[in-house]
């Protein structure tokens, strides 16, 4: 194994100068960024773009809206799933309160991922056998129809990954215009979390004859509820 100083000094010699001791002044970047005028517009463009990627989505203003929307998407499926698998709905420890109360009203009991088992391997397996993974989102990107999730002890990275379906909640106020704003906001928090996952639509591949196929490894169906209150 090569020593770090030796490795870095070798590069400096190739660059023909000693390694700078201070951070080089950042380069100027001037690209006109995509911007929308208000929260409402961002929410609606976000939704449009999410749907264009093959995701389902809706903007809800009340718990009633939310109930309707969940019923329309999933019908009685969750009840059927429970019969075979009591851990069919796997969720983060905390979801937006309007979502929590909707699930109680519907009587769809959620398995909290982090509490599902002490052994990570078991947790992964539970998530892999679940039918629906349910998460919140930290931020969204209107331009690309993207939800952004930071890792955190009360969450699970695999909840949005292993189940065949992923349902995410996002408040309209969390939707930003573009990636730049999202990255800027995350950097302002200091050391980033262990994982920032940005998800734009369902898992997809065009690896066989350039034929678009949905759901190769990640979720096949993705849903987002945009909460406007």
């Amino acid at each position: 194994m090569t020593n770090t100083n030796e490795f870095i000094n070798h590069l400096a010699s190739k660059l023909g100068r000693p390694t700078p001791t201070e951070t080089p002044p950042p380069v100027e970047i001037s690209v006109p960024q995509y911007r929308l005028s208000n929260t409402e517009e961002r929410a609606s463009i976000f939704l449009q773009n999410w749907q264009a990627l093959g995701g389902k989505g809706a903007i809800v203003k009340s718990e009633n809206d939310m109930l309707q929307c969940l019923k329309e998407w999933f019908g009685d499926l969750p009840i059927t799933w429970f019969k075979d698998n009591p851990q069919a709905l796997i969720a983060w420890d905390m979801l937006p309160s309007i979502a929590e109360s909707a699930f109680s009203t519907l009587n769809w009991p959620l398995t909290r991922y982090t509490q599902s088992s002490l052994d990570p391997r078991d947790r992964y397996s539970i998530a892999a056998h679940a039918e629906l993974g349910i998460t919140g989102s930290d931020l969204g990107i209107a331009l690309s129809g993207t939800i952004v999730m930071n890792s955190d002890p009360l969450r699970g990275r695999v909840v949005s990954l292993l189940p065949p379906r992923h349902l995410a909640f996002i408040e309209t106020t969390k939707i930003r215009n573009n990636l730049f704003e999202v990255l800027e906001e995350i950097s302002a928090l200091g050391t980033p979390p262990a994982a920032i996952e940005m998800i734009s639509g369902p898992s997809r591949t065009s690896d066989i004859e350039m034929d678009l196929s949905i759901g190769v490894h990640g979720p096949i169906e993705v849903y987002v509820v945009v909460i406007d209150n």
Partner: peptide, 9 residues
């Protein structure tokens, strides 16, 4: 953006 952009720290 690609479907999944992951930033690991």
């Amino acid at each position: 953006l690609s479907s999944y952009t992951t930033i690991l720290t």
